[in-house]
C-alpha cells in the first residue's frame, strides 16, 4: 500500500515536504495506526502521537486523505491510495503530524468546563433522574482529539475569537447537566458576537467527529437557551 506523508522538522528542514512510503503485507483488518507504527520502524524519525490504539484517548487526530480522523480507528481498506496524511489543519506544526494544540486547550479552559454546584453538597450523591442523565449522552463522550475544531472554517478564520465546536460542545455538556448551577453565568459568558455566534452551521465538525458527536446541534441548543433566557 502506498502512503504520502507530510514531513517537517523545523530543526533540519527548510520547509515541509511530502514523503512517499510503501508498505507490503497489509492485511484487511489493519488500522491506519498499525501501518504508521510499521512505517516508523523503517523511518524512526516519523513523528505522530498515539497511545490507546482504540479511539478513546484522542492522541492521533490527523488529516487523512483530506478529512480529519483518528488513525487508530480508520481501517486501511477504507482508504484510497496513495493515503495522504497531513497534520490537522490550522494549528502550528511541531513536527510532522504533531501539532501544537495549546489554542484548542485554551478554548476548552475558557468555557469553564467543570461542574459548578453552589448549594452545600449532600453527604451522598446529588440526585439525577435517568432522563436528566440522558441529556448528557452525546456530550460527555468527547475525547478532545481536535478533529472537529481544526475542520471548522469559522475556527480557521477566527482562531482566537471563536471558541470552536469542541469547546462549545463542552459548554453544552455543563449547561445540560441538571446538577450544574451556573447556567446564567455560562450563557452570559458566551453571549458575544464571536465566541458562539460565528458558527454558521457548516457541519464539518459533525462529519469528522470520530465519536459520532454533534457539536452543531449542541451549539444550536445553546443558542435556543439564550433566546429563552432573553425572553
Amino acid at each position: 500500500m502506498r502512503f504520502r506523508i507530510y514531513r517537517y522538522n523545523p530543526e533540519t528542514d527548510k520547509e515541509p515536504y511530502m514523503k512517499d512510503y510503501q508498505l507490503d503485507n497489509v492485511s484487511s483488518d489493519m488500522m491506519l495506526l498499525d501501518a504508521l507504527l510499521l512505517l516508523k520502524e523503517k523511518d524512526p524519525g516519523l513523528g505522530f502521537r498515539r497511545s490507546c490504539r482504540e479511539g478513546v484517548c484522542g492522541s492521533d487526530g490527523m488529516n487523512i486523505n483530506g478529512t480529519n480522523g483518528l488513525a487508530c480507528i480508520t481501517r486501511l481498506s477504507d482508504l484510497k491510495e496513495p493515503v495522504e496524511l497531513r497534520p490537522m489543519p490550522r494549528l502550528p506544526v511541531i513536527r510532522d503530524l504533531i501539532v501544537d494544540m495549546e489554542q484548542f486547550y485554551k478554548q476548552y479552559r475558557d468555557v469553564k468546563p467543570y461542574l459548578d454546584v453552589k448549594d452545600p453538597l449532600p453527604e451522598v450523591e446529588l440526585k439525577q433522574t435517568p432522563e436528566e442523565r440522558d441529556q448528557l449522552d452525546g456530550l460527555y463522550e468527547c475525547i478532545m482529539c481536535g478533529c472537529c475544531t481544526t475542520a471548522c472554517p469559522s475556527f480557521w478564520w477566527n482562531p482566537d475569537k471563536f471558541l470552536g465546536p469542541a469547546a462549545l460542545l463542552q459548554a453544552a455538556r455543563f449547561l445540560g447537566d441538571s446538577r450544574d448551577q451556573a447556567t446564567d453565568e455560562r450563557l452570559q459568558a458566551l453571549d458575544d458576537p464571536f465566541k458562539l455566534f460565528r458558527c454558521h452551521t457548516i457541519m464539518n465538525c459533525v462529519q469528522v467527529c470520530p465519536k459520532g458527536l454533534n457539536p452543531t446541534k449542541a451549539i444550536g441548543d445553546i443558542k435556543k437557551m439564550m433566546v429563552k433566557k432573553s425572553l
Binding site: 461542574l115 451522598v124 448528557l136
Partner: peptide, 19 residues
C-alpha cells in the same frame, strides 16, 4: 464515589436518581 459524583462524573442512574 460521592466525591467523584460531586466533581461532575456523569454516572449512569437508577430510577430513584441514585448512582
Amino acid at each position: 464515589v460521592y466525591e467523584m459524583e460531586h466533581f461532575g462524573v456523569p454516572f449512569s442512574r437508577l430510577d430513584n436518581g441514585k448512582i
